[in-house]
């Protein structure tokens, strides 16, 4: 088994002086963009749903519960296919036609982002719910006793602490999100995993290609974990030991 790492510097068939290394970086860029866009959807939507899962309002609780159960019991790949192949047919014709007119890469990126966003959102929903429920009941009572409305109590008392508590599990979800982004390769999006396959196909250098891609995923993980450690440090409440009070 002879390894040739210089293959990355060889020119790639796409021409224009691009090397295989450029291909790899292009794939990396798409993975990063896809992950960040999905994370925004997941965090915002998941947080709202998580709050709904803790509210006494049965309608809101029900909506959020249905959301979580549906998105957690269908495989990610199947969800992606639903967004990419099925949704364009089921939405109102105007929206469907607009989507079908999009250039292929944008369409794939959009479907992947929505898929990943809502899939991860279901998991974040449960994390947020766990975070809120881990706070002592007295905190909510103290907020209400001061005259806060329920919304104010969530905003000023419950959510600031809940989000601090769930920074570690949120970091795991971010890492999972980046890994899950690889499913987008199945519909043709040229993110990092897809690029790995391309590299193998074109260079016939399986070991080098896969090692490089693997190392890049590991690097992404480390960056995310490092960033979230920094967030945890910044968000730390002096004198408070994580675990939700007495």
């Amino acid at each position: 088994m002879d390894l040739n790492w210089h293959v990355f510097l060889e020119p790639a068939p796409s021409g224009g002086g691009a090397t295989y290394l450029d291909w790899t970086i292009a794939g990396l860029k798409i993975t990063v963009m896809l992950s960040m866009a999905s994370w925004v959807i997941a965090l915002l939507w998941g947080s709202v749903m998580g709050v709904f899962r803790t509210m006494p309002n049965r309608v809101l609780y029900g909506i959020a519960t249905v959301y979580v159960e549906v998105f957690r019991n269908i495989p990610l790949l199947v969800q992606l296919f639903i967004w990419y192949f099925v949704m364009p047919e089921l939405v109102p014709p105007a929206l469907g036609n607009w989507y079908k007119q999009l250039d292929p890469v944008t369409a794939m990126f959009l479907a992947s982002t929505l898929c990943l966003g809502f899939f991860t959102g279901a998991r974040i929903c449960e994390q947020v719910r766990a975070g809120i429920e881990s706070l002592s009941k007295g905190q909510k009572a103290a907020g209400l006793a001061l005259g806060f409305s329920l919304r104010q109590t969530y905003n000023y008392v419950l959510l600031p602490m809940a989000f601090r508590i769930i920074v570690p599990p949120l970091a795991s979800e971010m890492v999972n999100l980046v890994k899950n982004s690889a499913v987008a390769s199945t519909i043709g999006l040229l993110e990092l995993a897809a690029m790995g396959r391309q590299l193998v196909d074109y260079t016939a250098r399986a070991y080098e290609s896969f090692t490089a891609i693997t190392l890049l995923y590991i690097a992404l993980n480390l960056i995310i974990l490092g960033f979230m450690s920094w967030v945890e440090l910044k968000a730390r409440v002096p004198g408070f030991i994580s675990g939700g009070g007495r």
Binding site: S136, G138, A141, L144, G147, M161, G245
Partner: peptide, 29 residues
């Protein structure tokens, strides 16, 4: 909420808001 803002309550487990300073605990409401 209006009624509660006029009735003060002190809890067994204090229930100060841990993410706010002492002064902020007093001023926020």
């Amino acid at each position: 909420p209006k009624l509660r803002s006029h009735v003060g309550m002190v809890f067994q487990h204090f229930e100060l808001f841990p993410h706010m300073s002492v002064l902020e605990n007093l001023t926020i409401a």
